[in-house]
Computed example of a mutant assay.
Amino acid sequence: MTHIAVLGSTNMDLVVYVEQAPRRGETVTGRDFRTIPGGKGANQAIAAARSGATVSMIGAVGDDGFGTRLRSTLEHSGVTTDHLRTVEGPSGTAHIVVDDEGGNAIVVIPGANGTVDRLVPGDEGLIASADALLLQLEIPLAAVLAGARTARAHGVRTILTPAPVQPLPPELLAATDLLVPNEHEAATLTGLADPFAAGAALLDRVPRVVITLGAAGSVYLTRDAEPLAVPAPRVTAVDSTGAGDTYVGALAVALGEERPIREAMTWAAAAAALSVQREGASASMPYRSEIEARYPS
Rank of each mutant, 00 (worst) to 15 (best):
L7G: 11
M12E: 05
V15R: 11
V16R: 13
V18H: 04
E19N: 13
P22A: 15
P22I: 14
E26A: 10
G39V: 10
A48C: 12
A48L: 11
G52I: 00
T54P: 05
V55G: 13
M57H: 09
I58H: 14
V61Y: 05
L70C: 15
S72N: 12
L74G: 06
T80W: 07
T81H: 14
D82M: 06
R85D: 02
V98H: 03
V98N: 03
D99G: 01
G103I: 04
I109M: 09
G111P: 05
A112I: 05
T115D: 10
V116Q: 04
L119T: 11
V120Q: 15
G122M: 08
E124A: 15
G125C: 06
L126I: 10
L126V: 11
A128S: 15
A132L: 07
L134T: 09
Q136A: 09
P140L: 14
L141F: 09
L145F: 06
G147H: 06
A148Y: 05
R152Y: 04
T158W: 12
Q166M: 14
A174H: 06
A175G: 07
T176Q: 09
V180E: 08
V180I: 15
P181V: 07
E183Q: 13
A187P: 10
F196P: 10
A197P: 10
A197N: 12
A198V: 11
A198H: 05
L202P: 07
R205C: 12
R208N: 10
A216P: 00
S218Y: 07
V219F: 08
L221H: 05
T222L: 07
R223Y: 08
R223K: 08
E226I: 03
L228N: 03
P231K: 09
A243W: 03
V248T: 09
V248P: 02
V248S: 02
G249V: 13
A264T: 03
A268K: 05
A273S: 00
G280K: 02
S282R: 12
Y287G: 13
S289E: 15
